[in-house]
Computed example of a mutant assay.
Amino acid sequence: MSNKTKRILIVEDEEAIAEGLRFNMDAEGYETVVLGDGPSTLSYFEENSHDVDLIILDLMLPGMSGYEICRAIRERDQNIPIIVLSARTLSEDKSHAFDCGTDQYIAKPFNLPELLSRVRNLLKRPRIDPPPKHATEIEEFQIGNIQINFKTFEVIKDGEKHQLTTMEMQLLRYFIENEGDVLSRTKILKDVWEQGAEVTSRTIDNFVLRLRKYIEDDQSNPHHLLSVRGTGYRFIANPIK
């Protein structure tokens, strides 16, 4: 394991919050870089992506929203941990942030020990996510005319290529590796999401809806990713017709 000091990129335009985050991250032994707008953040990340280990990202920034920044970063790097730290507390704000590729969402005002705990947990995660302990890593998988590449985070359906986020791919791989099993929402939360992640059963439902867009011919009548009423979901690669 590398002993290199972990570098955290803090994207926050409110100076008091930014400096408070810097002080506390430095106190934990991390190296920090603070930026306050989208263009400088993307420029810095473009040049230093391999040296950044985690990003703490505000949503309300001058000139460019945190959503746009998150989406742009995900186009380059599907694995770097991103924590959104925002005063926006509506469920649609959180859903949009997850759609853009954030790993976790923390509302302001925030609890510092909780934030530090989440940072520590996410930094333990390898940049290339390992397979579940109970299974051999799957690199590729085919469902009918749909090709799934777990190394490139791509799903190709009818010749059209879709780029998935880290969490979308982790959840899809989880369903495939547990094919045929009825998986409760509680079990999915426990097995797929990081401990302490601010997600609910509704978050899982939203992710499943997105996965169905990639792997189902008719999202309203799914044949692979099935709902189990009152429990959760069940994945079937080759349903009996």
Rank of each mutant, 00 (worst) to 15 (best):
K213Y: 06
H162G: 03
K94W: 05
S184P: 04
H134N: 14
D129E: 06
Y233E: 00
T231E: 05
A18M: 09
D26I: 07
I148G: 00
K133A: 15
L9V: 11
S65F: 04
S117F: 02
H162V: 09
L189D: 00
N238D: 11
E46F: 08
F153Y: 06
M1E: 04
F150A: 02
T136C: 03
R234G: 07
R212F: 05
V33C: 09
M169R: 09
D58Y: 00
I73H: 02
D53N: 07
L225A: 14
L57C: 14
P109E: 15
L189Q: 04
I146Y: 04
D205I: 06
E168S: 04
E68N: 02
G29T: 00
V155D: 03
E194T: 15
M167K: 05
L171D: 02
G230M: 07
E160F: 11
V33G: 11
G38R: 11
T186P: 00
I80G: 05
N238W: 02
Y44R: 12
H134Y: 05
K133M: 12
T203P: 06
K157M: 05
R118F: 01
A27M: 08
D26P: 07
M25C: 07
I106P: 00
K151F: 08
E194A: 10
N24Y: 02
E28D: 12
K190A: 12
F98Q: 00
F150Q: 04
D103V: 15
N221W: 01
P132N: 13
E198G: 03
P109T: 04
K108Y: 03
E75N: 08
E28W: 14
T136P: 09
L211A: 06
H224M: 02
H50C: 10
R185V: 09
L57Q: 08
K151A: 05
S201G: 12
F98L: 02
R74M: 09
A197N: 15
F98A: 00
M64G: 02
Y44C: 09
D158M: 11
R120I: 06
A87R: 11
Y214D: 02
G38A: 10
G20K: 06
D53W: 00
P130Q: 06
